[in-house]
């Protein structure tokens, strides 16, 4: 396989096995040269210790919310990742055996530079940032998640997209053996997501490789996933193996599967209901799991347009009818 570096791509450059293995252990050490395994018992036992490398050299970000993050347990045991099953606990249950290394990402389409890259090379040129973001699921629940990642725009710029690149398409790994949920045809595989180039170049989206200062757990999309905080969670595709610059709007998975319920844009919008439920309010996960009485005091909260990120992204949709383009 030809593995290129994003910085200077020569087709002749082939990674030797040694360098490759080196990189691998480097990744397992958690992208950090030190490779310290966290004394992370403070967090949880949900993810086995040997999969929990601490990340270092993480910068803070002005885009982080000051709201208190959800617990590591909530974030790692309650989410959707249909590649591992359709229940909310399935990703946690059925992703434990998943081995996300080695991992390559194929960049293709309308850009000056394209090719296959080791995850490590992909990430290395960038400084890791912690982004504490609100996450709003289309199912009307939400969390606060302390992601660690790299700005998507910085990554994409390196490939020098052409003027014809109007959209960026992402694809998740297809591997029935390792992703048991793919044995069911509940969605069409691979999972496909996409953004307009303007959305992708906004400073908010990141490619996340970590959570709570550690490597990203399998159930949350290891080793690398997208996070687009002003859109419903299903836009934030996990386990990315392909990125493609394209002039045509990607046919995304949920839109393909139920076009009257899920759109390409999928911006969080309290004014536009899902056909089967209202999006006006949301339940913040976690605030109700502190025992009996807290269940009854866990009231819902108002959903904010663009999930509260309107200041950064509303201008992207000037003149667009958000009711039609839901």
């Amino acid at each position: 396989m030809i593995i290129r570096k994003p910085a200077d791509i020569k087709p002749s450059e082939i990674t030797s096995k040694d360098a490759y293995l080196n990189r691998r252990s480097f990744m397992q050490g958690g992208l950090a040269a030190s490779g310290t395994i966290l004394s992370g018992s403070a967090l949880s036992a949900v993810v086995p210790q040997d999969r929990r490398g601490k990340l270092t050299g993480i910068r803070e970000s002005e885009y982080s919310t000051s709201e208190a993050p959800n617990s590591y347990d909530d974030i790692t045991t309650y989410n959707n990742y249909y590649e591992f099953g359709t229940g909310k606990a399935d990703p946690y249950r059925y992703s434990q055996e998943f081995e996300p290394h080695p991992w390559t990402i194929e960049v293709s389409g309308d850009a000056e530079k394209t090719g296959s890259f080791h995850l490590e090379d992909f990430v290395k040129p960038h400084t890791l940032e912690e982004r504490i973001y609100r996450l709003r699921c289309v199912e009307a629940w939400s969390m606060i998640v302390p992601w660690v990642g790299i700005p998507l725009a910085d990554v994409l710029k390196q490939f020098q997209p052409l003027a014809s690149a109007k959209y960026v398409q992402f694809e998740t790994l297809v591997d029935k053996g390792r992703m048991p949920g793919q044995r069911s045809r509940v969605l069409r595989w691979p999972y496909v997501e996409g953004l307009t180039i303007a959305e992708a170049m906004n400073p908010l989206p990141i490619l996340a490789v970590g959570l709570y200062g550690e490597v990203l757990p399998n159930q949350n999309g290891a080793p690398i996933r997208l996070v687009v905080p002003w859109k419903y969670g299903f836009k934030s595709i996990k386990g990315i193996v392909k990125i493609k610059f394209t002039s045509r709007r990607p046919r995304t998975s949920w839109e393909t599967s139920a076009p009257h319920e899920y759109g390409f844009y999928a911006n969080v919008n309290p004014e536009v209901s899902h056909p089967r439920w209202s999006q006006a309010r949301e339940r913040r996960i976690g605030s109700g799991s502190g025992g009996f009485s807290s269940i009854f005091s866990n009231t819902k909260q108002e959903t904010l347009k663009f999930n509260g990120y309107g200041e950064q992204v509303a201008h992207l949709y000037d003149g667009l009818n958000l009711r039609k383009n839901f």
């Binding site: 347990d73 909530d74 045991t77 309650y78 909310k88 606990a89 629940w141 339940r283 996960i285 976690g286 109700g288 799991s289 502190g290 025992g291 009996f292 269940i295 866990n298």
Partner: peptide, 15 residues
């Protein structure tokens, strides 16, 4: 399950 706080991250939905 309610008493043992064993309803997962979204207890209301679970109930």
């Amino acid at each position: 399950r309610v008493v043992n706080n064993d309803l997962g991250a979204n207890p209301i939905e679970a109930m």
